[in-house]
């Protein structure tokens, strides 16, 4: 590593700024005291309390339904979108519009979707949240896959055809495997984004099926409890695991 010189100072400050709050949160989740500000001893009681909290458990199940469903749908649709846009349109404008849901503000997307669901008469429920997450998730998957298609040799598919494979076999044996790292990375990205998405879920959800971020939000309005700290620490663990495994997978398959 190169010597940073005086740049070391802002570097350390930036990292401290980023990670001290997270570290405090994780440490406090093991605090025996109910006060989030005073350390009185080590305890895992808040984790136990967390697992016994019916609201949180239901919120977690709802979130998983949305995240898993949205990931599957967004991955399939996003991959097809990416292939279509880069194979058949070759237009920068079409490509930009297909990626827009990933860029436009959540609030705008949320209000737009709410209006749309009202217009076509979709009852707000977990299903409408799932559809809403598919909308932006698809754009993220498409963005990652389009980048990958740009790097792959377009003659691979022609070579497959030349060697006697039909269109379907070529897609299954050549196109999909060569895009697999990007598809997996995109899927994991959608999963983590959906897991803690608040704004869109808040707008498009029905009243009886809150997702985990909405549950947390309503709990925090009455003050941050150590239980919330424990929950946040767990979410952190899940996100880190997914991000690191996504990197591993892309690196492993890229090294071929």
């Amino acid at each position: 590593m190169r010597n940073l010189g005086w740049l070391r100072v802002p570097f350390i400050f930036t990292y401290a700024f980023l990670y001290i709050p997270i570290a405090v949160l994780v440490v406090m989740s093991f605090n025996a005291s109910k006060s989030p500000f005073v350390w009185t001893g080590f305890s895992t009681q808040w984790y136990t309390a967390l697992f016994n909290n019916e609201l949180i458990r239901q919120g977690f199940i709802n979130t998983m339904i949305v995240a898993v469903g949205a990931t599957i749908l967004a991955t399939i649709l996003g991959t097809l979108l990416a292939i279509g846009v880069s194979r058949y349109f070759r237009s920068a404008i079409v490509e930009a519009y297909s990626l827009a849901p990933a860029i436009i503000p959540d609030l705008v997307l949320a209000i737009g979707l709410l209006a749309f669901f009202a217009l076509v008469g979709v009852t707000l429920s977990l299903f409408s949240v799932l559809l809403a997450h598919v909308v932006f998730g698809m754009a993220f998957v498409a963005a990652v896959v389009i980048a990958r298609i740009g790097q792959t040799d377009s003659s691979l598919e022609e070579a497959s055809r030349d060697l006697g494979a039909g269109v379907v076999t070529t897609f299954r044996k050549i196109t999909l495997p060569s895009l697999a790292p990007a598809i997996i990375a995109g899927a994991l990205l959608v999963f983590t984004l959906s897991l803690d998405e608040f704004v869109i879920a808040y707008f498009t959800n029905g009243p009886t099926t809150p997702t985990l971020p909405i549950v947390i939000y309503s709990m925090v309005r009455f003050g941050v409890t150590p239980e919330i700290n424990a929950l946040a620490a767990l979410l952190l663990l899940v996100s880190f695991t997914i991000v690191i495994s996504a990197q591993r997978i892309t690196r492993l398959t890229d090294a071929v």
Binding site: S155, E158, A159, I174
Partner: peptide, 16 residues
């Protein structure tokens, strides 16, 4: 192309 009794070696080689 997949039914023609000819084969093409691509400039980029196009190895899988």
């Amino acid at each position: 192309p997949n039914k023609r009794p000819v084969n093409l070696m691509f400039q980029s080689y196009a190895l899988f």
